[in-house]
């Protein structure tokens, strides 16, 4: 697996919060009937979680299942387990109308960590953060590119973008965390 590298090789910037490229993450697009028993079983086996409800992400340690649309989930697993998980999902959903696609290498993942982590994203995303629920995943745009994020810790957000624009996204994050640009300074 040493040949596999993430888009930015884990680069990090420290401003009024810390932003880092989080490295490779196994990610699998699953489309199908989210209400079916087969889907429940497949997701449970892959992540240990329930099928997430609308705009929810269900997390179980290093695995998660996120709601993408009424017929699409994103399954997150450690990078090295993606292929095996794809095979398991395919098997569990066999016989139903579904699509499973490994997208682990098509994405870049970022961690935004610090007490003011939300302020960084408030500069880039047209999202009402005060109304963001615990465990909610929000698909939106970050400045000019598509992105999805969720609150992954008490003072941490995880943001996912397409791999090709990883450097652009890191550029946005770096400029947005520069000291002195806090949105709500004390």
């Amino acid at each position: 697996m040493s040949k596999a590298v993430s888009a930015l090789s884990g680069v990090s910037h420290k401003g009024f919060v810390q932003v880092s490229e989080a490295g490779l993450r196994g990610m699998i697009t699953v489309r199908g009937d989210l209400g079916s028993a087969a889907m429940k079983k497949a997701v449970k086996a892959a992540t240990g979680t329930a099928v997430p409800a609308q705009r929810r992400i269900e997390v179980a340690s290093d695995r998660a299942a996120a709601w993408m649309s009424p017929d699409e989930l994103l399954v997150l697993v450690p990078y090295g387990e993606a292929q095996a998980t794809v095979a398991a999902l395919e098997q569990a959903l066999a016989g139903t109308h579904h699509l499973v696609a490994d997208v682990s290498d098509a994405r870049a993942v970022f961690t935004i960590r610090g007490a003011r982590a939300d302020e960084v994203l408030r500069k880039l995303c047209p999202v009402d953060f005060d109304a963001l629920a615990e465990g909610e995943i929000r698909r939106t745009r970050a400045a000019q590119v598509a992105a999805a994020f969720w609150k992954s810790g008490p003072e941490e957000f995880t943001l996912v973008s397409f791999r090709s624009v990883a450097a652009y996204v890191m550029g946005l994050l770096e400029v947005s965390v520069r000291p002195g640009s806090e949105l709500f300074p004390a």
């Binding site: 609308q54 705009r55 649309s69 009424p70 047209p126 929000r138 698909r139 939106t140 745009r141």
Partner: peptide, 12 residues
């Protein structure tokens, strides 16, 4: 109506 987000035009 699918995801329940009140989206602004730049998301659409």
């Amino acid at each position: 109506p699918y995801c329940g987000v009140k989206a602004e035009e730049t998301e659409l």
